[in-house]
Simulated assay, not measured.
Amino acid sequence: MTVRVLLADDQEIVRTALRLVIDRREGLSVIGEASDGEQATALATELQPDVVLMDVRMPGMTGVEATRRITTTWPGPGQAPRIVVLTTFDLDEYVHAALHAGASGFLLKNSTPDQLAHAIRAAADGEPVLAPSVTRRLISTVTALPPALLPSPPTPSPDERSPTDLLTERELQVLVLVAQGLSNARIASALDLTEANVKSRVNRILTRLGLDNRVQAAVLAHRTGLLATTRMPPET
């Protein structure tokens, strides 16, 4: 099955380079190009790609707003495309906002062709497009952002259960490892599960907690104290 990709970047030379890299990879194909957020939103609806590579800074409608519109107003059929945000800086505040607007992850523009291809395939499969070290920095930085940019699960009253009380013990274990930045493969290895089983559990966790992506789940785990007594794995 070929993963269909839409490119959104205001620089033609960047789009050309991305197209050359992607189209040379087996199972990947660029089906369209957009030069701003408004065009990206329109083409996403028209072409229904599997993945959108979205530049975060574009004239007019930004990549953040385009991401929000695609993920929240998707007309179907099927699910909205996975959106991978492209950025020059790994701690760009716009990237955090885009993740909370529904992006599946982000990729640095200086990534290698192999990293780009892997990120596209991972996003299409519902995998995170975030390295463990980047996830740690995201958790640290995102939790310091203004509340308007953070996921806001309801705060329970003293006689109510915490949102994480909705999860089973195994799901809590998976959530902690997600918050530590582990991939589905590493979580499967750590918990002696299959990758398919981990993927299913992660999706169930997001649904039960009312979250859109793994970064939001990581932030929630951080805010509810699940990581307080958990040792983070060494950076890779």
Score class of each variant (00 low, 15 high):
10 D>L: 00
162 S>T: 13
224 T>I: 10
192 D>I: 11
231 R>G: 13
189 S>M: 10
111 S>G: 04
88 T>N: 08
94 Y>M: 04
83 I>C: 02
172 L>I: 04
41 T>N: 11
151 P>N: 05
170 R>Q: 13
29 S>F: 13
126 G>H: 03
56 V>G: 00
62 T>D: 15
138 L>Q: 11
15 R>F: 05
68 R>T: 04
99 L>D: 04
145 L>C: 08
181 G>N: 04
118 H>Q: 15
69 R>I: 03
72 T>M: 08
171 E>I: 00
152 S>C: 11
79 Q>M: 14
85 V>E: 00
8 A>Y: 10
148 A>K: 15
174 V>S: 01
126 G>I: 03
230 T>Q: 14
184 N>G: 11
162 S>V: 10
98 A>D: 00
229 T>S: 14
218 A>D: 02
154 P>E: 12
145 L>F: 10
208 R>V: 08
120 I>L: 01
74 W>A: 03
86 L>T: 07
146 P>R: 03
43 L>Q: 13
177 L>F: 08
191 L>M: 05
110 N>W: 03
184 N>M: 12
133 S>M: 11
124 A>N: 07
87 T>M: 02
157 S>N: 13
163 P>C: 11
165 D>C: 08
92 D>H: 02
20 L>G: 12
144 A>K: 13
160 E>L: 07
235 E>V: 11
198 V>Y: 01
103 A>W: 02
124 A>Q: 04
42 A>W: 13
164 T>G: 13
110 N>Q: 07
2 T>D: 15
96 H>Q: 10
212 D>K: 14
112 T>G: 04
7 L>K: 00
67 T>Y: 01
209 L>P: 06
47 L>K: 14
176 V>E: 15
208 R>M: 07
160 E>Y: 04
47 L>R: 15
41 T>W: 15
13 I>Q: 12
209 L>C: 05
49 P>D: 06
79 Q>S: 15
151 P>M: 05
70 I>W: 01
50 D>V: 04
100 H>S: 13
133 S>C: 09
192 D>F: 13
128 P>I: 00
93 E>A: 09
9 D>G: 02
142 V>Y: 06
146 P>G: 01
34 A>W: 10
78 G>N: 07
140 S>I: 14
31 I>Y: 01
76 G>W: 06
107 L>T: 00
36 D>C: 01
123 A>Q: 01
156 P>R: 03
142 V>G: 06
146 P>F: 01
41 T>D: 10
105 G>C: 02
99 L>G: 03
159 D>M: 12
49 P>H: 09
123 A>G: 01
85 V>M: 01
152 S>F: 08
164 T>M: 14
230 T>S: 14
129 V>R: 12
183 S>M: 06
176 V>Q: 15
2 T>I: 12
190 A>P: 11
158 P>K: 01
131 A>T: 11
49 P>Y: 09
37 G>Y: 05
122 A>T: 10
73 T>I: 09
92 D>R: 02
194 T>S: 09
113 P>K: 00
175 L>N: 08
68 R>P: 00
223 R>I: 00
21 V>C: 04
120 I>Y: 02
176 V>C: 12
185 A>H: 14
29 S>P: 10
31 I>T: 09
163 P>Y: 10
75 P>T: 04
53 L>W: 04
201 R>D: 15
217 A>L: 06
143 T>A: 14
135 T>D: 10
214 R>M: 08
4 R>N: 11
